[in-house]
């Protein structure tokens, strides 16, 4: 996928469109993004809550031999087999241990349901759209490729993930 200006902006618009209140409220306060934010290592990431189906506790992840490196394994989601993506390795961080705070964020994207293993989930965060800036170009790490932008808000730095790219799993 080419990284031109449009491609970088489109998912952002998606964030806003997903919120009827924000879309309709031209006269009201500035439009906001509703994000589910979570931690990986010491960094905070966010995805639009419209893509989140639920957040579950980690209750055993079974490793599957010979799968892509960023797939942690599979888990039982109420009788359905859910593939769990190791978001850390996908974003170029080292694989971390599963702790009591670990969660699986179940996302629905283009008709597919997948789990994202994260270190910790925070509350749903509302972020004003104008606090979002494009990803800083000076920071060229593996993960910048997967960002649609960075929100600086309330003395927090939230990196907005482009799930489409993160989960382009067989690429």
């Amino acid at each position: 996928m080419a990284i031109d200006g449009r491609a970088a902006v489109e998912p952002l618009l998606g964030f806003v469109d997903a919120l009827p209140a924000a879309a309709a409220g031209a006269s009201g306060p500035a439009p906001t993004l509703h994000l589910l934010t979570f931690a990986l290592d010491r960094e905070e990431f966010g995805i639009p809550i419209t893509q989140v189906r639920e957040v579950i506790r980690v209750n055993g992840i079974t490793r599957v031999p010979q799968v892509p490196a960023h797939v942690r394994g599979v888990t039982n989601l109420r009788g359905r087999i859910l593939a769990v993506v190791e978001l850390r390795t996908r974003l170029g961080l080292v694989e971390g241990p599963v702790t009591a705070a670990s969660r699986i964020v179940v996302v629905e994207l283009r008709g597919r349901t997948l789990g994202l293993l994260v270190d910790r989930v925070s509350q749903v965060t509302k972020v004003p759209v104008d606090s979002v800036a494009p990803p800083p170009e000076e920071v060229v790490t593996a993960e910048t490729d997967f960002l649609t932008g960075v929100a600086r808000w309330d003395s927090r730095l939230i990196m907005l993930l482009d799930l489409d790219k993160v989960l382009l799993l067989n690429a």
């Binding site: 031999p65 010979q66 799968v67 892509p68 797939v71 599979v74 087999i81 597919r112 989960l167 799993l169």
Partner: peptide, 13 residues
Amino acid sequence: KGLDPALGRPAVV
């Protein structure tokens, strides 16, 4: 049960 497409095609499973 099947394999999720996200798992690719592991040869041993």
